[in-house]
Design a protein around this nucleic acid. Structure first.
Length: 872
RNA sequence: CCCGCUGUAGCCUAAUGGGUAACGGCAACGGGCUUAAAAUCCGUGUAAUGUGAGUUCGAAUCUCACCAGCGGGACCA
């Protein structure tokens, strides 16, 4: 055994051996329990970053632990290989997205392999592989046939910088989620998946996921799906045959309605104004409202603007004539795109009515039962809940009025109970090249038809000019576009949209279960064995989009009969970001004004270029632009992958953000050296001594203590892995165990030569340590394990068994309080009962002194913890 | 504006059904080893647990209010 620890030699050695021996490759084995540990697939940016290390270290620790506990562990990896950045990069460098992506995968794979994560690489999947995306197309067609995917013309979010359409989620806040540019509206024919069909189930199932998914992810998904229960009410239009249907959650306020308001996109506007003098004015105004910046519209910063169409609707409850308006604050995508305005019950309607001076009636009472006239009202108050001026329903509570009036509307055929969701159908079309081609054909005679299944996959053509200024690059490839109609054999055109990459990531981890299947996306019996995922680990940024779409896709696949469960992921862990402090040169005349690299800042915190004191910025997520990123590959070269992995796990609980520290990183490397040194020191003694059955009753105090601490720490690590997964505390326990071994070593040194029993006890402690450290630092542990004479990889070695009897303390310290204040400590046997504790505490000299002349009210006894004497 | 999470020594973190506030690390300081330094071994703890109240024999932990930081939502009828 080498005296020194050389991670640069050990790590490649074990990485090679694991690969040669296929240590982590698995197959279905019905005699063993399976465990599916999954980390989110990597986007092929071309470079590993510290977030990857953090993500994979968590999953690898759990995979190692479960493997050592006897589970058949599936731990696969793959690449999120389609998407806009590869296309942008290809345009910039004059290469091809495929070449760019293949090179990125090769580079990143080599980098990730240096981390030594225990992946079954034989199951690797890249989403840009036609063998993979063929099944995206297959799913698309199956869903199209069942009406679950459809096409409609709709205003889409459009990023002018990237010339790409964005989903509502991707355009959240009115800016592009990737580049931050403001988003404009553009009308296009788009493919949509009917996610709203599953909105209710997606929402309700979240209740059962409480405790297994992070609370904030569940909250975010609930908010995003956003269910409202209410009613649809149909209003006849005076002098027209048409009617307008509105959605309202407060049908009980309908007697207070003073207008019907339509979204500017509402199809009835043109008809209602036809042949009227105000027609042009209304249409122009509606057009203006449509073009209003979506960001302001969704940010709620928009001034309310509207125009009267000249038409009137009839309130079915009281036959009042209500003017029909068009206004910008009504959204076409939500509900029916039309609302009834009730100023007394809704702040928006109140504000709008006040601005345009539309009179209205009060329909609620104050708490004292007083009616508020409209002009006295500052704004609607939700505490006013009793209904007035509401015909036969006056005097009812809101809830009661809602129920009864909905039933009335239903009975009279002008309304019904209705549920509306904030969740919209998912726009999956992209007008770009680097994605899965939509497998559809447009024929002038036969309409829109799917590509016949035997012709799948529709492969992306190569050598395409990406630098087009209009539409999609695929529009400009005649050989791709011009096809024969599968029905009439006439000339037809291929659809040139590609799919959102969230389609790829919806089901990639199903594919891992059967990655080479060319007959179907996956075989059901393999899914039945491996799925669902026991533990999924990834970033919080995927809380809404990816994790809702993949849940949706699972339910679709279930309804196709492909899988037999409802939810794909049992437990979810969202890992924190790795952050670092930032430096900023505030001198605008300096050539390096703005962010600085740490090495550009002097020890006394000045800019190296201009001498100005730097601003020490906040501790932020590592990023290229803020110049605070550390390169994991450099770190591996410095201290090894084991130390790097250990550091990111030790810096804090997995779900919390962590701060990078060079000193802390060196500290974990120092720790591994410390483990190596003590293993080296005892290596020859242990090798010389035959393995020995330890006779507990013959051990001295130091030996008993080391055994006891060993088993206490086995308990701690085991419980932590099974429960909270606070891996940082596992590592501190391992350090503690290491310190105990050193302490024992010291006592042996003081008393002279080590005995055979000493060697046996240290061996037991060290081998427990090596096995428990393996999930965090597998290379060094495999090496030490081999040095200690074991032939079999730790991956095939059992986790240490916890022995309750050996962990038991011989004596415990009990705090003794008087009126809640600590006054003394006593030592008793751990199983001492209440009477013994009470008697021992009261007999204590310090306690006696405190009780002098006082009356004991009661004595609280907590076994193994404390005694509290309450006095007066 | 609404909702949620977090707040513990100089710093990061622990305390798992209220029960002795430091398990571990970083930094600092002292000592051993060394001609010296590095490395290494041993040792050293300095907090009214963000602020204020409440419940309790007892609160970092439960309740309320406030402050700070972070995150989510925000004309969704």
């Amino acid at each position: 055994m080498d005296e020194k620890y050389f991670p640069q030699e050990i790590e490649p050695k074990w990485q090679k051996r694991w690969a040669d021996e296929k240590t982590f490759e698995v197959s279905e084995d019905h005699s063993r329990k399976k465990f599916y540990c999954l980390e989110m697939l990597a986007y092929t940016s071309g470079r590993a970053h510290i977030g990857h290390v953090s993500n994979y270290s968590i999953g690898d620790a759990l995979s190692w632990y479960k493997r050592m506990r006897g589970f058949n562990v599936l731990h696969p990896f793959g690449w999120d290989a389609f998407g806009q950045p590869a296309e942008t990069a290809a345009i910039k460098h004059g290469t091809d997205p495929e070449q760019f992506t293949r090179e990125a995968i090769a580079t990143m794979k080599a980098q990730f392999q240096k981390m030594g994560i225990s992946y079954d690489w034989s199951r690797e999947v890249a989403t840009c592989d036609p063998k993979y995306y063929k099944w995206n197309q297959w799913f698309f067609i199956e869903m199209f046939k069942r009406g679950m995917i459809y096409r409609k013309k709709s205003p889409v979010n459009w990023c002018t910088k990237e010339n790409i359409s964005l989903s509502n989620e991707q355009a959240s806040g009115g800016v592009c989620w990737r580049c931050g540019e403001p988003v404009i509206q553009k009308e296009l024919m788009q493919w949509f998946a009917r996610t709203t069909d599953y909105a209710g189930e997606l929402l309700d199932a979240l209740d059962k996921m409480e405790g297994d998914w992070p609370e904030r992810v569940i909250t975010m998904q609930r908010d995003w799906i956003g269910r409202s229960r209410g009613a649809q009410v149909t209003f006849k239009i005076a002098d027209f045959d048409d009617s307008i249907t509105v959605f309202t959650t407060r049908i009980d306020t309908i007697f207070g309605a003073n207008a019907i308001t339509l979204a500017p996109e509402h199809p009835l506007i043109a008809k209602l104004t036809e042949g009227t003098p105000q027609r042009d004015e209304v249409l122009t105004f509606a057009e203006k409202l449509k073009q209003q910046n979506r960001s302001a519209r969704t940010l709620g910063e928009l001034d309310k603007e509207g125009i009267f169409t000249g038409a009137y609707a009839i309130n079915p409850f009281n036959n009042e004539r209500l003017p029909i308006w068009v206004a910008n604050f009504v959204l076409i995508e939500y509900g029916t795109g039309a609302v009834m305005g009730v100023p007394a019950g809704d702040e928006r309607d109140f504000e709008f009515s006040r601005k345009y001076q539309i009179p209205f009636r009060q329909i609620k009472l104050t708490q004292e039962g007083r009616e508020i006239p409209g002009d006295e009202l500052g704004k609607p108050n939700e505490e006013w809940t009793t209904t007035v001026n509401t015909g036969e329903w006056s005097g009812l509570s809101s809830r009661e009025a809602n129920e009864k009036m909905t039933a009335y509307a239903e009975a009279h055929g002008f309304g019904k109970g209705s549920i509306t969701y904030k969740l919209r159908d998912w726009g999956i079309s992209r007008q770009r090249y680097w994605g899965t081609p939509v497998p559809m054909i447009h024929c002038e005679k036969c309409g829109t038809l799917p590509v016949p299944e035997e012709q799948l996959p529709v492969v992306l053509p190569k050598g395409v000019n990406l630098n087009v200024t209009e539409g999609s690059p695929l529009d400009h490839v005649p050989a791709f576009v011009n096809v024969e109609c599968p029905q009439c054999q006439g000339a037809a055109k291929r659809d040139t949209d590609t799919m959102d990459t969230f389609v790829d990531s919806n089901w990639y981890y199903f594919r891992y279960c059967d990655p080479h299947n060319d007959q179907q996306p996956f075989a059901k019996e393999k899914i039945d064995y491996w799925m669902p995922v026991e533990q999924y680990i990834g970033g919080i940024e995927h809380a809404v989009m990816h994790l809702i779409y993949t849940r949706y896709w699972t339910k679709v696949m279930r309804d196709f009969g492909l899988v037999s469960f409802d939810e794909p992921v049992t437990r979810l862990l969202t890992q924190g970001m790795v952050c670092k402090e930032t430096f900023y040169c505030p001198n605008k005349t300096c050539e390096h004004y703005e962010w600085l690299f740490p090495e550009e800042v002097s020890d006394d915190k000045r800019c190296n270029f201009c001498g100005t004191p730097v601003v020490v910025g906040r501790v932020e997520k590592m990023s290229k632009s803020k110049k605070n990123a550390v390169d994991p590959i450099e770190m591996i070269a410095r201290n090894g992958a084991d130390a790097l992995r250990l550091f990111v796990l030790f810096a804090g609980p997995p779900e919390k953000d962590k701060e990078w520290s060079d000193e802390g990183f060196d500290g974990t490397a120092r720790y591994l050296n410390r483990v190596w040194r003590v293993a080296y020191k005892w290596h020859s003694r242990i090798s010389a001594a035959p393995s020995l059955e330890i006779n507990q009753s013959a051990l001295n105090e130091a030996q008993r203590k080391l055994r006891r601490r060993t088993h206490q720490l086995i308990r701690h690590l085991t419980e932590n892995f099974e429960g909270r997964m606070h891996l940082n505390t596992c590592i501190s326990s391992l350090m503690e165990l290491t310190n105990e071994i050193y302490a024992f070593d010291q006592t042996v040194d003081k008393t002279g030569a080590a005995t055979v029993t000493d060697a046996a006890v240290v061996r037991a402690a060290l081998e427990a340590l090596i096995r428990m450290l393996a999930p965090f630092a597998p290379h060094i542990c495999e090496e030490l394990w081999e040095q200690f004479g074991h032939r079999e990889s730790l991956a095939k070695t059992a986790w240490p068994e916890f022995d309750e009897a050996l962990a038991r303390e011989e004596e415990v310290e009990i705090a003794v309080q008087v009126n809640g204040k600590l006054r003394s400590r006593i030592f008793v046997a751990p199983d001492a009962d209440d009477d013994v504790l009470r008697a021992t505490a009261l007999a204590d000299d310090k306690i006696k002194a405190n009780l002098e002349g006082k009356q004991i009210v009661k004595v609280v006894v907590i076994p193994r913890r404390l005694v509290n004497v309450v006095i007066k």
